[in-house]
Design a protein around this nucleic acid. Structure first.
Lengths: 124, 124, 124, 124
DNA sequence: GTGGTCTAGACCACC
DNA sequence: GTGGTCTAGACCACC
């Protein structure tokens, strides 16, 4: 994985795990690599991974079982929450970009509508 | 300006100029910095700027007058074309990202609708 | 191949390839020498060959497959287009030259007619 | 004037003078520069100019008057002859080029016809 | 091995 | 001073 210099690495690790969850690449209840393993994989300081894991535990995204490891939380509603959060971010960035082209709400909605319809036609 | 290692610099220059045009930061008919100036500004080789300028001329985006400089084309319809192109790209990336979260067309449209409405309320 | 100092080398390479195509010395679909080979043959810098190849790709004359090589396009209608273009150029230069001798349209046409008839007789 | 390495310079001088005559840049009866002057202008050995002048005199194109200089011949019919000769050369090269594109007599004639007609329309 | 990108720098044509 | 062409050579991505 490549990190972006503009944001703290631990935040990028968190975001990456959220995306993997949303895409189904990670499942609730699944065991994560140990902090040491993850740090080695990402070529990052173990302290950085620890910070990411700690924050995700605080958010209720992970659960740590002493001596067993760290797991994606099984808490009901987790996945929808994550998806909603990610979707919100994507949505905001999208609207900002479209606005910067001088498009108003009606035009943006209309373009999204068209694009989705064309996609449907493409499938047929 | 910062360049992304993953894409050719000359393409990033082109995209940057398109965006500036769409945002009104550049106007049709306006003179661009000379190839040497632009190269100095961007800390890039003049040949790389020239490649970008040449491709934009081929696309009908710029016009170059030997010995005088390079200008944004005055061709009618230029701005709408550029905006449509950029909007199309933003739209496609947006839909791909939303789809990767498992959202269907109806849900995407509904979320965009909500987000735009909230924005409206925020203004009041 | 010898190059003319008065015109850019890359344009002369392009014209040479068009002529070879028109004469049937190159066939649609055929693989061209690699940029390096062609550069060595013509005793020219590889960048110059690449420029020629790239412009021809833009014109739809060539197709390049990364890592595999560069090929004459198989696009239907390619050959007639090229021939028409070359013929147009020859024709224009011919008429300009004849006009510079003070000949009018009727005289030019008549001379061409005679010359072609004589040629026919020569064959018999 | 630039000379072509592939043909003797004195022949190129002769051809140049014929062209100037055909275009009206030189007139029958007009005095030519002295051999010395011409040699200086063209940056060529005086012997080369002498050879050109001698051959043109043999052809009846020039007349040399001892002590007065060299003149374009006033012989009636000179201009038409020169023009016919030059036209013949242009015509032959033209037909060879068109043939090399695979065009037959009928097609060549038709293209010339079209080109001349379009030229006429352009004037209106 | 093939094409693609980029740098550094020279020299030219046109203004 | 401006863009246009060309060389020499490096390094990369894809095959």
């Amino acid at each position: 994985m490549q990190f972006d210099n503009s944001r703290p690495i631990y935040l990028q690790i968190i975001e990456s795990i959220k995306k993997q969850l949303a895409r189904g690449e990670l499942q609730p209840g699944q065991k994560l690599p140990s902090q040491r393993e993850m740090a080695a994989e990402l070529q990052v300081n173990p302290n950085t991974v620890q910070r990411a894991y700690r924050e995700m535990e605080t958010m209720g995204l992970l659960e740590t079982l002493r001596g067993q490891g760290t797991f994606i939380s099984n808490r009901p509603g987790l996945l929808p929450e994550i998806k909603a959060e990610l979707a919100g971010g994507i949505l905001n960035r999208f609207i900002v970009e479209m606005r910067s082209l001088g498009l108003n709400a009606r035009e943006i909605l209309s373009l999204v509508h068209q694009a989705l319809e064309q996609e449907e036609e493409g499938k047929r």
